[in-house]
Design a protein around this nucleic acid. Structure first.
Lengths: 207, 207
DNA sequence: GTCAGAATCGAACGACCGTGCTTTTATGGT
DNA sequence: ACCATAAAAGCACGGTCGTTCGATTCTGAC
């Protein structure tokens, strides 16, 4: 790898770490340069604008997410086992303290920062990534359906959304409220979610 | 109301609106002053620091939340009816477009901004508010238990957390993904949550 | 070892940041 | 109508922001 690409990579790693706890909007070329013992302008040259840096950080994070969450989960046998592995890896990702993302999942914080922003390169990329993530979730869920472990007529997209909500709840409980029971609560919620989608479960309740 | 308090109130209203879409961290005395056709220093005098302004904005939002969500819900008969009313009002609150909070629920965005911040006046206030909100949720849920509409041995705190996760999911679906089905999905999730907690429902599934 | 090109630096820019001070203007009780 | 006081304005400060540009140093193929 050429010197330039190597520096760029190091910079992105540090930028991700900083973005995870001050927010993607609030990373600063100057602060980042200091952390890397570089000049502002020297660092700046690698990305041609702050906006581009933000997009690159998102891409870097997505790569990392794929390698540390999605791919390992795909090694588990298809079905509920894979789904549970995915959730566990996901919970681990959100708690990636000390290295990579001391401030917790960057996609969650970036979502809240850019959700009501007008369209733009950063928001667009983020939306695309999240939609792709929902696709992956649905695929894994459908795997469990095909294995006969979840019921045939399950609304897999709804399931994916509820799973996502569960993870968001975990994020708040563990990070803001610092609740030691957060992880256990997430598992409980997942169990209930799976139970309601099991082939045995009757059509639920009155509206 | 004296002139000073009136100005202060107007300022807080505007500050809340701006904070809801640039984030509580990123509101600016200067921008805020311009929006109010005031001088920076004239506005600044009302709050003695930016940090104090942020705390005051949170308090202002909490007041508004109590008046528009909690109190109206308390007019419904205790039990599931009240719980569903609360959720509907809550969904409305998160979509308070055009006035008050064009950027969606400020507590959600503030949570993501301050979750991994060290303790401080702003974070502390936010945590206290959220914990109080969880208490209110639990109280309403317990009301449904006492009415015999939810089962006796229900873990009401777990229920509250899952309900909160559901709302967070709605926030993402409606604001980031702009999914028109977001509200319907939230209702579906609530139905499932209630169904699983109904007195009829058997002890769910294998671990 | 040379030399083109890549990588980095240093200095500067205009703009805006939060905050402190002093002065001007508006308010409202008497 | 007066006047103490409250509210707002004006101005300045040191700092940081993203970005530009020209000069400098380093890298790596030949």
């Amino acid at each position: 790898m050429s010197k330039g690409l190597q520096t760029r990579d190091t910079a992105l790693r540090e930028a991700l770490a900083q973005a995870s706890h001050v927010g993607l909007k609030n990373i600063t070329i100057g602060t980042l340069a200091d952390s890397l013992s570089m000049s502002k302008s020297g660092l700046f040259a690698h990305f041609r604008s702050k906006e581009q840096l933000q997009v690159d950080v998102l891409d870097h994070a997505a790569d990392l997410f794929t390698r540390t969450v999605i791919q390992p989960a795909l090694k588990e046998p298809r079905g509920l086992e894979r789904l549970r592995a995915l959730v566990d890896l996901w919970l681990g990702w959100d708690g990636y303290a000390d290295w990579a993302m001391p401030g917790g999942c960057i996609f969650i914080s970036a979502t809240m920062e850019f959700d009501d922003e007008p369209d733009g390169p950063v928001r667009d990329r983020l939306v695309a990534q999240q939609q792709q993530w929902f696709d992956s979730l649905e695929t894994v869920i459908r795997g469990a359906v095909r294995e006969g472990q979840l019921r045939e007529d399950l609304d897999t997209l709804q399931f994916a959304h509820e799973l996502y909500g569960l993870m968001l709840g975990h994020h708040v409980a563990s990070r803001l409220l610092r609740d030691p029971a957060a992880r256990e609560r997430a598992h409980t919620a997942l169990d209930r979610l799976v139970a309601a989608a099991s082939p045995g479960a009757g059509t639920p309740a009155p509206a």
